[in-house]
Design a protein around this nucleic acid. Structure first.
Length: 802
DNA sequence: ATCGCGAGTATTTTT
DNA sequence: TACTCGCGAT
């Protein structure tokens, strides 16, 4: 990234002495480097690593920073306190549990667990119709908790029906958590803060422990985190924060941009340092970034500059719809890859996860490997959650949410009635249901029919049998035993064969995740004495089930991102923060999407959306593509989309527009509703002629000297557009072209029959198991030899009968 | 107790 | 469009 030598401002930041310091670090200005060098310098000057506390936004960032520091400082680097707010919170709670009256081996509930608990509560309370939904309740409960308002206070101050209900739910929710010996995400920070608030002694001892506190991505801290920081830095006042007000994009989750804007007021004597030299991007990209962000009013104000020579202009591309958008991207990547670019140099960024679909399909068609960050995360998959629920119950039988998830999965004859009776019985005995099963199985007979009681006893014994020592048993071993004792994989088999295959793979992946976690922990322990866990605050043996569960609870998807893998990366703009790529495609830059329709209420929200756009722009090193589509499918029907207002803020001299014809034509016309298929051929011929070379449908930019891709049939696919924008497209024709096969494949619902043998370019040969849908939506389920079942879209898969 | 189907809803962003 | 949930039938 940056050169070998630090620039003056960077050096100043690294050398900053005692007292508060605010570093306004523009995108690509080398802030990570400043942080690591500063920590290095502190350690070298004699500050013990364990008295340095560094907050990062993701675990990944913490890991990378630690790795770099280890290279320069050796194993002592593992004694640094480096992590996200949540993981640092956990570390503190694992030690201060007594003071807070919580169990030391508490379970961590994520959003999904919260929701399950809330659902149960709402049902149990039998609230009147039209009351809070679980989601609604959760957001209110979260609000209370982040403001450190307890249920009693919430009840007292409740205004109106809704809030009164929320307070009631909140109270039950807290009860449920504590009964399950669980903490939710907010607790991980709120509890330490509450402890520090109320207990001067504890606060002092923690604050004294940390001589230096550093915070990365400071612009995205919420008030609770801010208090956490303040407490922990209160002894010395050596608070060093790094951030960029222009990249504050988490306002919706409570981040308060004023923390950075007003930092100097809150911390008198603050030294302010600005890093404005950008080492990442070319001039055109920076010019675009600067121009866009200057439209925001709530900012400190800064201008990024670079001494990098001029580069390629930023390309703004208008396309007809999301498919064409995806097509442009895939085609572009393919051709650049053919010229020697690595796939890992490309990122496709979008506002919402839903946008990934079209891009995925396109990349798949071009056989370009990609990885998606976010979306349904690995740890959110049903099968993964099921297995984790088992593990959680084994580790903590009080965890009722998890117990309910698996009580009858796979089915073991414990139905709703039995479940209700169990819960009822447990309630009366003031025990958690899981505890009844595992420790007091004998009382089951009193209230349950003999057969039900027997099944439950068996289940309880099963759980104990899998692991009775979660603090010491290695996580992978427990998981293996679980898979051995519980016919879970067979149970997966029972469902749709296609899904089953994918799910089995996910089970495998979980197992290997547990294995590599275990190994990593072992080598960590061997190497660093205590590993990254210098102060024995980790629960149980390294690599044990308990250790694993804590880790899993705190992982975000981005943390798992494979940096080594040579694939294209797809993710939301939020996930892209802090990353950089040689070429970036910013797609869906349209009104309603960016800015998003849900974030247009006031200028503040628009500004945050603009920052999001800015974040996207500044990820790019040398090539930036900004795309917007004229039409986009949403909820099944097609909407026409206006280009984003942000596109009007781009400086013309630094950009190059493509697809103008479409833009011009489309904006002039009136929206014509359903495009008539009969006119398709005519219009496309007339139109395609002009557009093929310079227009939309020829995606090779004029300045591109490289040989263009061998033209795939779609290149000749004319835009289906004329004065009146056609909202619906004639699909079936088009796709027989796309797949590049003759009509016999995709027409008349197939040419496919169940039982037929077919060949797929990458999956090999197989037998058609089932057909679904029809026309261009025809899906073929194929059992591939040695690969297993796959569901494929016939129009895309290019299957050949053999 | 389990399965299947139909209806209704969802898409903003996440540690 | 696609997925989840709930209800009703077996």
């Amino acid at each position: 990234m940056a050169g070998l030598q630090l620039n003056t401002s960077q050096q100043e930041a690294v050398d900053h002495g005692p007292g508060p310091c605010l570093v306004i670090a523009g995108a690509g200005s080398g802030k990570t480097r400043v942080l690591t060098e500063r920590i290095q310098r502190l350690v070298k000057s004699g500050v013990p690593p364990w008295s340095i506390l560094g907050f990062t936004f993701t675990n990944k960032a913490a890991g990378e920073m630690r790795k770099r520091l280890e290279e320069n400082l050796g194993p002592v680097a593992s004694r640094l306190w480096l992590g996200t707010f949540h993981s640092i919170g956990v570390r503190i709670l694992r030690r201060e549990w007594q003071a807070l009256g919580i169990p030391q081996d508490f379970t961590i509930y994520d959003a999904d667990d919260q929701l399950s608990l809330l659902k149960r509560i709402i049902k149990g309370l039998a609230l009147p119709e039209g009351s809070l939904t679980p989601q609604g309740a959760r957001s209110l409960v979260e609000k209370y908790k982040s403001a450190l308002v307890d249920p009693v206070k919430a009840g007292e101050h409740a205004e109106g029906f809704r809030e009164a209900q929320a307070a009631r739910i909140y109270k039950e929710y807290q009860r449920g958590l504590s009964q399950a010996q669980a903490l939710d995400f907010t607790d991980l920070i709120a509890l330490p803060v509450r402890l520090f608030d109320s207990n001067k002694h504890v606060r002092k001892s923690w604050a004294k422990r940390f001589e230096y506190v550093l915070v990365d991505e400071f612009q995205d801290t919420n008030p609770l985190q801010m208090r956490f920081i303040q407490h922990l830095s209160s002894a010395t006042g050596n608070l060093f924060v790094v951030g960029d007000d222009d990249q504050s994009i988490y306002g919706w989750r409570g981040a308060d941009i004023r923390h950075i804007l007003d930092f100097e007021t809150h911390f008198p004597g603050t030294v302010l340092i600005r890093l404005e030299q950008n080492y990442r991007s070319t001039k055109p990209i920076l010019a675009v970034a600067n121009a866009v962000i200057s439209n925001n009013t709530h900012r400190k104000g800064k201008e990024l500059w670079t001494d990098r020579e001029e580069g390629q202009k930023v390309r703004v591309v208008s396309v007809l719809d999301e498919e064409e958008e995806a097509e442009v991207i895939a085609r572009r990547i393919k051709s650049q890859a053919a010229m020697g670019s690595k796939l890992r140099d490309f990122a496709v960024l979008y506002r919402t996860h839903a946008q990934s679909r079209a891009v995925e399909a396109s990349l798949g068609r071009y056989r370009l490997p990609y990885q998606i960050i976010g979306g349904t995360r690995f740890y959110d998959r049903k099968e993964v959650r099921d297995l984790l629920a088992y593990l959680k119950v084994i580790a903590n039988p009080s965890d009722t949410v998890s117990l309910q998830r698996i009580l009858n999965v796979p089915t073991r004859g414990i139905g709703k009635t039995s479940e209700a009776r169990l819960i009822d019985l447990a309630e009366r005995r003031r025990l958690a249901p899981g505890v009844v099963l595992t420790a007091y199985a004998e009382i089951l007979d009193e209230d349950l029919p003999a057969s039900a009681a027997r099944k439950m006893r068996e289940f309880g014994r099963l759980l104990l049998d899998i692991s009775a020592a979660p603090a010491t048993d290695p996580a992978p071993q427990v998981l293996e035993k679980l898979l051995d004792k519980v016919p879970y994989v067979d149970y997966l088999q029972g469902s749709d064969p296609v899904q089953a295959q994918v799910r089995r793979e996910n089970v495998e992946e979980l197992l290997s995740a547990a294995q590599s976690f275990y190994e990593a922990r072992l080598s960590e322990t061997a190497k660093g004495g205590n590993g990254s866990n210098g102060d024995m605050d980790r629960l149980g043996q390294p690599g044990s089930l308990l250790d694993f569960l804590t880790d899993v609870a705190l992982v975000a998807d981005i943390d798992k991102m494979e940096a080594r893998a040579d694939t294209i990366t797809l993710m939301t703009l939020h996930n892209a923060k802090g990353l950089e790529y040689e070429t970036v495609f910013l797609c869906g830059v349209e009104e309603q999407l960016l800015p998003h329709a849900m974030s247009c209420d006031d200028e503040g929200e628009i500004e945050e959306e603009r920052r999001l756009f800015y974040v996207g722009v500044t990820r790019a090193e040398s090539r930036l593509w900004i795309l917007h589509a004229m039409n986009r499918r949403r909820f099944g029907d097609t909407l026409s989309c206006a280009p984003s207002r942000f596109l009007e803020e781009l400086p013309e001299e630094w950009i190059e527009r493509e697809g103008q014809e479409v833009l011009a034509t489309a904006t002039l016309g009136t929206y014509g509703g359903w495009g008539a298929r009969s006119t398709y051929a005519d219009k496309s011929r007339g139109y395609g002629k002009t557009s093929n070379r310079n227009g939309v449908s020829s995606y090779s930019p004029s300045s591109d000297s490289a040989p263009t891709q061998p033209r795939s049939p779609i290149a000749n696919r004319a835009p289906r557009i004329n004065k009146a924008v056609q909202v619906l497209k004639p699909k079936s024709n088009e796709f027989s072209q796309v797949s590049g096969f003759d009509d016999d494949v995709s027409q008349e619902d197939g040419g496919f029959r169940v039982g037929m043998r077919v060949r797929h370019a990458s999956l090999g040969d197989g037998v058609i198991h089932k057909l679904e849908g029809g026309g261009d939506k025809l899906r073929v389920i194929v059992m591939f030899d040695g690969v297993g079942a796959r569901k494929l879209l016939a129009r895309v898969a290019g299957l050949q009968p053999i």
